[in-house]
């Protein structure tokens, strides 16, 4: 069993524990073990922290990387912490920078030698596990489900550092969606930002929601049943942002949001409840369309016990 250090970041455990649970369950199905990163902190946020204080951003990022290195494992993750850890790792290939960071890390008894790789969970699904293996485990093909795939920014850019797929024509998520039997629906401005990142959500919520509104309008025009995200922060922006837009009377038809591992989990026969789909602000109306055999469909306020038990 291949093992990865699972970097949770902040948003997943605080707001969408369902993403964590779904990811743990799905990875287990494909013989990938996820190790806890004891003492991991905020990544720290790629846009804001990195722009204001590059050295402390590198330093804290390196501390997180050193936790995984001690576990002798590569990191996988489900959020825009990818942007920080992957890029910090890239910058620390420079020995001079690494030495400078290690001088400080040494004071708390840590060191980062640069041996850990940072892989997004989408990379694991599309490249390490592979579409054929995913297909072989499907018990509930998601036939008829129209998915609006959102790639977001940090997963793809800066493309000179990311390298894993084309920043202009990415297809990992679309291929995953299609392999599950669902349809990835083309829509305008597919590669546009969700609006949240780079401190925009925190700094200027109206501007951030303008982005979100444009995206969801384009997806609605294309007739999607749900929005698929690869990033907990985009997930938050679409799930919470559409409710905020509704309150401002700018948007009446919120589209349910689903994380990539949650969608895979559905196709693998996991119950919507165990995947945390009822923990979202927007209820997963698409479930009815799929005609899945469901357990309890009542919205639960407690964490998804049955999933926790299965992890």
């Amino acid at each position: 069993m291949k093992k990865f250090a699972f970097f949770l970041g902040c948003i997943t455990p605080l707001r969408y524990p369902g993403i964590e649970i779904a990811t743990r369950q799905v990875m287990k199905q494909f013989d990938i073990g996820l190790l806890d990163m004891d003492g991991a902190s905020c990544c720290p946020a790629p846009g804001v922290f990195g722009s204001f204080d590059l050295w402390n951003w590198l330093l804290i990022g390196a501390r997180n990387l050193s936790i995984a290195e001690k576990l002798d494992a590569d990191i996988t993750l489900v959020c825009n912490g990818y942007a920080t850890l992957q890029e910090v790792n890239h910058l620390l290939e420079d020995e001079e920078k690494r030495d400078r960071v290690n001088d400080v890390l040494g004071k708390i008894g840590r060191r980062y030698s640069g041996s850990t790789k940072v892989r997004h969970c989408v990379e694991l699904l599309a490249e390490d596990i592979g579409l054929e293996k995913i297909k072989s485990k499907i018990t509930n093909p998601l036939k008829g489900l129209k998915v609006g795939v959102h790639y977001g920014c940090h997963y793809l850019k800066p493309s000179k550092v990311r390298l894993h797929e084309s920043p202009e024509a990415p297809d990992h998520l679309d291929k995953i969606v299609e392999s599950l039997g669902a349809e990835s629906v083309p829509y305008r401005e597919k590669l546009m930002c969700c609006g949240a990142g780079g401190g925009v959500r925190a700094g200027n919520i109206d501007e951030a929601l303008d982005f979100t509104l444009e995206k969801v309008q384009n997806m609605k025009d294309a007739g999607v049943d749900c929005i698929l995200t690869p990033c907990a922060f985009c997930h938050y922006q679409f799930d919470t942002g559409q409710i905020e837009l509704k309150k401002k009377e700018k948007w009446n038809t919120p589209i349910p949001v689903i994380f990539v591992t949650q969608l895979v989990g559905l196709a693998l026969g996991m119950s919507p409840k165990s995947l945390g789909l009822y923990e979202h602000h927007i209820s997963p109306k698409y479930i009815d369309k799929l005609g899945l055999k469901l357990g309890k469909t009542k919205k639960s306020s407690s964490p998804t016990d049955e999933a926790v038990a299965s992890c």
Partner: peptide, 12 residues
């Protein structure tokens, strides 16, 4: 970016 309207095949 160019986006094709799936119905009309026009280009946005």
């Amino acid at each position: 970016e160019i986006y094709e309207d799936p119905e009309t095949k026009n280009l946005q």
